[in-house]
Each structure stands twice: as C-alpha cells, then as structure tokens.
C-alpha cells in the first residue's frame, strides 16, 4: 500500500477552497445563487459568516468602533488559529494554491521538487511586517491589507472579471507574489504576509504541532530541505512559531520520525 501523504490531502483542500472562490462569482452573477458570497476576506455561507482576523482587527482599530456581528464572524478563524496554528495559510489560502500549482508543474517538468531558495532574510521580518502594516493603516486611516492582500485579491480579481468584465490593476500584486515565489519558495508568506504573522502569533501556543522522535531520526536532513518555510524540523525541540502545519516534513521523512501531535 502506498503511504498516505498529507501533501495530496492538502492540495485537495487548497483546490476545493480555490474552487469556491472561482466558481461562486459565476453562480452569483449568472444564476443569482446567493448562498455563498465573498472570498477569503469575508465569506458568508448561508448565515454563517467568516471574517479574516487581520481584516477584522484593522477595521476595528482604524474605525475605532465595535460591531458585534464582526467579532462573532472573526470567532471561528481565531479559534482555528489558536488551536491549529497557521493552517489557513497552508490548507486554504488561494495564494498557497497557486504557488503549489507552480511547484507541481515544476515537478512534472523537472521530475524533482524545488528545494532551493535564492535569497533569504531573517524570519522575524514577518513580525515587523505585521506591526508596520497595522501602524500604516492607523496613520492613513485606511486598512492597507484589505485592498492589497494577495489572498483577497485573487478572489476580488475573479469576481471583478465575472461581474464587471475587467481586471483591477492592483491584481499585479498577486503576480509579484508568485514571481517572488519563483526565486524563494513562498517568499511573501514567509517574510511579508501580515495575515500569516497574525495567525502565527495567535497560534504560538497551538495544540496541533509537529514533533520529532529523536530515537528514530537519522539526521538525514530531508525535512529541512523540503520545508517550504525554510524551518529546521530536524532540530525541533519544540515546534517553531512560524510553522504552518502543512505536513511536508512529515511526508518527506522516510523513517517516520516526524508526526503530528495534539499537545494537551
């Protein structure tokens, strides 16, 4: 029996998540089927609302007003981040889907996985990105991430194309992010995404973690190479705050020394 791979399950999840925002504008526009509206800034499935935590936080901080339905809509994403960590990034985000798609196409042509990064910067840049973004938003009194967030822009561009038959120029951001991905794997997600930073911050004490069984580990370093965030799973004493639980390292380990664990 072939070994179960998180990779395939995750790609399926990313694909379905992308399918929702790709198909839904057509349903809305041509069939007036309004059961689902929006994309990953805020999505409404029937009466169940989700609001992305960073967008919601920015709206509260910038407008300096509270609105109860907004807080309730942020509740589920925040709880998911608290318990599972940055799983939105690796299992749902459309930018993740497009990046993985590029990686898969690369793998078909080259026959092997991309494991190199052209240039790297210190990982803590991520936190400065979050702080800087919130400060800028509060200074100019307009939330910056809400109209320039790559995950949101993917949905917005599809919707603009279906509804108004044109693309918004800010969609260039998505292509810039994907171009950066060609040089350094997930450059934007690693160092610049404020939403990822907020989710990582929320998930710093998360329950779901990847652990290493030191006795069966042979220090081959495959997991270090395969990690798209350039973390070092082989040296985990405890799980990294930047880890987004994608399970790439779990898949790569031939000795099954890495595994998901629910820490209590």
């Amino acid at each position: 029996m072939r070994r179960f791979k998180y990779e395939n399950l995750r790609f399926l999840s990313l694909f379905l998540a992308f399918l929702i925002i790709a198909v839904n504008p057509f349903l809305n526009y041509y069939f007036h089927f309004n059961f689902i509206q929006g994309w990953y800034q805020s999505i409404g499935i029937g009466k169940l609302w989700f609001v992305s935590p960073l967008e919601g936080l920015e709206a509260i901080l910038v407008s300096k007003t509270l609105y109860l339905p907004l807080l309730i809509a942020m509740l589920i994403p925040v709880l998911v981040a608290l318990f599972l960590g940055r799983v939105f990034c690796s299992w749902v985000c459309p930018i993740s889907f497009l990046s993985e798609l590029i990686d898969r196409i690369y793998r078909i042509f080259k026959g092997k996985k991309r494991t190199y990064d052209r240039f790297t910067v210190p990982k803590r840049v991520l936190w400065f990105s979050l702080i800087g973004e919130i400060l800028v938003a509060m200074v100019i009194a307009a939330p910056v991430f809400v109209f320039l967030s790559p995950p949101g822009l993917v949905g917005r561009e599809i919707m603009m194309m279906v509804f108004f038959k044109r693309f918004a120029p800010e969609g260039v951001v998505v292509f810039v992010v994907l171009a950066l991905h060609l040089f350094t794997r997930r450059f934007f997600c690693r160092y610049l995404c404020p939403l990822g930073a907020l989710l990582a911050f929320l998930g710093s004490k998360r329950r779901l973690v990847i652990e290493r069984n030191a006795s069966s580990c042979v220090n081959c370093g495959l997991c270090d190479k395969t990690c798209p965030l350039d973390l070092k799973p082989s040296q985990y004493g405890k799980a990294s705050v930047y880890c987004w639980n994608c399970g790439e390292c779990v898949d790569s380990c031939s000795k099954r020394a890495l595994y998901f664990r629910w820490r209590s």
Binding site: Q41, S42, G44, G56, E58, G152
Partner: peptide
C-alpha cells in the same frame, strides 16, 4: 470612517440582484 470600516469583501456587490453596486479599484 467608511474606508476604515469596509473590509472590501465585495459581498454587497455579489449579492446585489440589480448589479448596481460597483466596486472601485486601486485608481
């Protein structure tokens, strides 16, 4: 406070049956 409060999710534009809600772009 409109610019601060609106998170640009586009749900109003998607749900409008008359397609009268237009979404502005970065210009």
């Amino acid at each position: 406070i409109f610019a601060g409060k609106c998170i640009r999710c586009g749900r109003c534009a998607e749900v409008c049956p008359y397609r009268c809600v237009y979404m502005l772009d970065i210009r």
